[in-house]
């Protein structure tokens, strides 16, 4: 059977990114298993999960690409969220109380980054609206819980709470049409 070749010849490229990603993934798994064995044999607090969380954060910083909506600020938010959980976990294991302040500072930095990004990437700013709403609501809930003395109260909470109110006012007063449209798209059941 003679096949007339009517396609261009292809330079086969090796996808080094996927290759390195797989190798690093394997190294991470092995290192976690080693830490887990040492941790269980020595006893004490479960510090091996510090390693796991650290690896997960590194993996998301360098290797995780979102298949849809791979926007820098989305990735930053996701990594911030992971770091917040990480700090909370360390605090919980060591029975200390510093993560509330640090996490509140991280939340208001995150809100600030989102606002800056909203105005810098004006062409794509509509895709940040829902994310900003979520972060603001989160800050407001933490603020209310602090006022009710459920969570410890600190200066970072006041800053992030105020910033969240500014974001909500900005979105619902100056960008209300766009905000409602974006919410409709985001929560569409169709």
């Amino acid at each position: 059977m003679n096949i007339e070749n009517n396609y261009p010849s292809i330079n086969k490229k090796i996808n080094y990114f996927l290759l390195i990603k797989k190798v690093v993934g394997i190294i991470f798994i092995i290192s976690f298993i080693c830490c887990l064995i040492v941790n269980l044999s020595l006893g004490g607090s479960l510090w091996c999960f510090y390693v796991l969380f650290g690896e997960v954060i590194l993996y998301f910083i360098f290797f995780k690409r979102f298949l849809v909506d791979n926007i820098m600020i989305y990735r930053v938010c996701f990594i911030f969220l992971l770091i917040i959980i990480y700090f909370y976990y360390i605090d919980l294991i060591n029975n200390t109380n510093w993560s509330f302040l640090v996490n509140d500072i991280l939340i208001y930095i995150l809100l600030l980054l989102q606002i800056i990004s909203f105005f810098i990437n004006y062409n794509y700013h509509k895709y940040m609206i829902v994310m900003m709403l979520f972060s603001s609501l989160c800050s407001i809930i933490i603020g209310i819980l602090s006022i009710l003395r459920v969570l410890p109260f600190n200066w970072a909470i006041i800053v992030s709470f105020s910033l969240a109110i500014i974001v909500l006012v900005m979105l619902f007063v100056f960008y209300h049409k766009l905000t409602i449209l974006e919410l409709k798209k985001y929560f569409s059941l169709k």
């Binding site: 261009p8 798209k185 929560f187 059941l189």
Partner: peptide
């Protein structure tokens, strides 16, 4: 784009480039 329940398509006023295969 990602929604909370489903993905959706959003109109983009973009120039789509043709490529040589």
């Amino acid at each position: 784009h990602k929604g909370f329940f489903w993905n959706y398509l959003d109109y983009q006023n973009i120039r789509i480039k043709v490529y040589k295969e």
